[in-house]
Design a protein around this nucleic acid. Structure first.
Lengths: 214, 214
DNA sequence: ATGTTTGGATAGTGGCACTTACCAAGGAGG
DNA sequence: CCTCCTTGGTAAGTGCCACTATCCAAACAT
């Protein structure tokens, strides 16, 4: 398959594919001669993953490169590879540790993990980007003056844990190691927008049930 | 309060506040004379909301302006205002209706809503941005070649519905109409990153439980 | 032999979220 | 009164990012 065909089958413009090649998001094709390169189904698959990450997941190009680097690093075991890939994903503004709201959010998040008995996550609080993202969101909420009891947070966390269990069960159904790693990335990138859409739809549904359309 | 103090109390640079004023994200202060304006607590509150939307929620400035326009439009009833504000939020790439994956995703999404009995949401499929977001994510998944049974989707939707019920219950606790509308926006913008962080943390926890840290 | 297609390199584009530099009008101190 | 600093407002500039347009020479197609 030549670049033009890759473009046609993926719906991505040739110029953009060249850009991705340059940026290292796609491995180079098999060079036939100075002006021709051959691409295969694997390239098409990778290109679709890249597009999904960038367009649906809104991941910056530099981050996509980093994530794919981990995905392809077969010197590592699967768990590590998945972990490394997922940890490269989040686009987290660093919480400002001097801010009182941020410090309070840290305490709240730690208490939450203790209540849930998430002992593994508890050990990751200094390094996990997801933990930092949680802290940033909690701090922003408090800064706006909203208050709620801890139970609300626990309930939501339990819901998300159920979702995570379903995700990992789904991962297990993937046949090969390669595919498991890739599916983990696709899950993180695509399941989250999906959950968000379902959440928003559910709000619309529930809101209409309670208050009608008016 | 003068602009400099507003800047100090919010942690937002004076130049950025001037930018927000220019862009209409903040109402102008009470003009004292040609070179002095007075701002109040309401401005500070609004500024914090704007910051949360932009930094935590990653909402583009133009969208924030539109959302706040709906929030402040007191010619409308609450439900409508909330709806309008939330519908302005999502940054959805329009699904390409000519794409076979997109059409299949439409069918899948419709079937899901039928199964769930979300009759209100079912009526909104032509207009709801959340529905379109769901379709885009489903199509991307299928395009990557992943398959799952419909039950998985239903389970996730039920989880998000529970979360949505909790959200609306929380909204009810807000004392005034004004605050309910604002809280709805803050919820949409901040709860979703929070859920996402909890989801990722839950995945890390569950993954460590199953496979250890290695 | 000639026109077209190829992949690759370079530079440019448009959008966005700020930031910088500047300005005239006020007010404060002498 | 005069000088000097501060104020809010405006216009232009910055840096980043995801492309995209333009060239180019080598290779194929006829």
């Amino acid at each position: 398959m030549r670049l033009a065909q890759l473009s046609e089958r993926s719906g991505v413009s040739a110029a953009t594919i060249k850009y991705y090649l340059r940026e290292g998001l796609l491995p180079p094709g098999r060079q036939v001669n100075a002006t021709t390169a051959e691409y295969d189904e694997e390239h098409l698959r990778r290109l679709r993953l890249v597009r999904a990450m960038i367009q649906v997941g809104r991941i910056p190009v530099a981050t996509v490169r980093e994530v794919l680097g981990h995905v392809d690093d077969d010197s590592l075991g699967r768990t590590i590879r998945v972990g490394a890939a997922l940890w490269a994903l989040p686009q987290v503004p660093e919480p400002d540790e001097d801010d009182a709201y941020v410090r309070a959010a840290h305490r709240e998040a730690d208490a939450l993990l203790d209540t849930l008995g998430w002992e593994n996550a508890r050990q990751l609080t200094t390094i996990s980007p997801a933990y930092r993202r949680l802290v940033v969101a909690l701090a922003a909420f408090r800064r706006l003056g909203y208050d709620w009891d801890a139970e609300l947070l626990v309930t939501r966390a339990r819901l998300m844990h159920q979702a995570a269990v379903a995700d990992l069960d789904f991962l297990e159904t993937q046949p090969s190691e390669e595919e498991k790693v890739e599916a983990a990335v696709a899950s993180a990138v695509l399941v989250e927008p999906m959950l968000q859409a379902l959440h928003r739809l559910a709000q619309e549904e529930e809101s209409a049930r309670r208050y009608g359309f008016e």
